[in-house]
Simulated assay, not measured.
Amino acid sequence: MVEARHRRIAADITRRIKAGHWRTGEQIPSRPMLAVEYDVHEQTIRLAVTLLRSRGILEGEARRRLFVAHPPAMRTMTAPDAEWPYGSETTDTRQMRATAELAGRLGVDIGTSLRRETVECLDPGGRSAMLVTSWWRGQRTQHATAVVEVGVVPLGEPQAHALGLTVDTVAYRLVRTRLDASGNALETADLILPLDRWLLRFDM
């Protein structure tokens, strides 16, 4: 069976990495070369590679070179409203109209013009650790407090690409809404955190 074969190949590649056959950050053979080595169709290797990328063992985009992944740094988040202490890159600042979900979160009418900002938060080594997309109306103003809801979400293509993961990988989704002193929503945001890089522990 193809499924059993690609899982066996993934397990063997993992074993070889742990045995030091390939070191962290080292390029491994191409997909065609692996297909020849394992005497399988290249599609079987692609399935094995997809599995290994989803587990954080390999990194590299489709049709690109493959490398042994650096172990992701596990970080603890205790304050989802705190400023990010490391580097970051703003990747999207387009305005948009409020969807039904955003309208409900911000207490505005559907179709209201909103400002949007997506920020890729980097760890101290310069690797992507979290994506934060924020929406607000008008000018940003100082907030008094914030509320956070925690769930999970499968990654879409842009998110997966930014985080170096595969599409549909499940990640934490923190919905953070910043409020004024009267409890009115000023800004709402989605914080997307890879499950394998984060532990959530909130101070209450």
Rank of each mutant, 00 (worst) to 15 (best):
A4V: 09
I9V: 14
D12F: 00
I13V: 14
I13Q: 04
T14R: 11
I17N: 05
A19N: 06
T24G: 07
G25K: 05
Q27R: 13
S30D: 01
S30W: 00
L34G: 00
L34F: 02
V40F: 00
V40D: 01
H41N: 15
E42G: 01
E42C: 03
Q43Y: 03
I45K: 00
L47P: 00
S54F: 02
S54L: 05
R55P: 00
G56I: 07
L58Y: 04
G60W: 06
G60I: 15
A62Y: 04
R63N: 13
R64T: 15
L66C: 07
V68K: 07
V68I: 11
P72R: 12
M77G: 03
A79V: 08
A82N: 08
E83T: 13
E83V: 14
W84Y: 01
G87Q: 10
G87K: 05
S88M: 09
S88Q: 13
S88Y: 01
S88F: 09
E89Y: 04
T91S: 12
T91E: 04
T91G: 03
R94V: 10
Q95H: 08
Q95A: 14
M96D: 11
R97S: 13
T99K: 00
A100S: 13
L102C: 02
A103P: 02
R105A: 14
L106W: 06
V108C: 12
V108M: 09
T112F: 03
T112S: 12
S113Q: 10
E117R: 15
T118R: 15
V119S: 07
V119Y: 01
C121M: 11
C121Q: 15
L122T: 10
L122N: 05
P124N: 11
R127L: 11
R127F: 14
R127G: 11
S128T: 15
M130W: 04
V132G: 06
T133P: 04
S134Q: 13
W135M: 01
R137A: 14
Q139L: 13
R140N: 08
R140T: 14
T141R: 12
A146G: 09
G156V: 13
E157S: 12
G164A: 08
T166S: 10
V167Y: 05
V170N: 06
A171P: 06
Y172I: 09
L174R: 07
R176I: 15
R176D: 10
R178T: 12
L179I: 10
L179W: 05
L179G: 09
S182W: 03
N184D: 13
A185P: 14
E187L: 09
D190V: 07
L191D: 08
P194V: 12
L195F: 03
D196I: 03
R197F: 00
W198P: 10
L200D: 03
R201G: 05
R201M: 04
D203I: 08
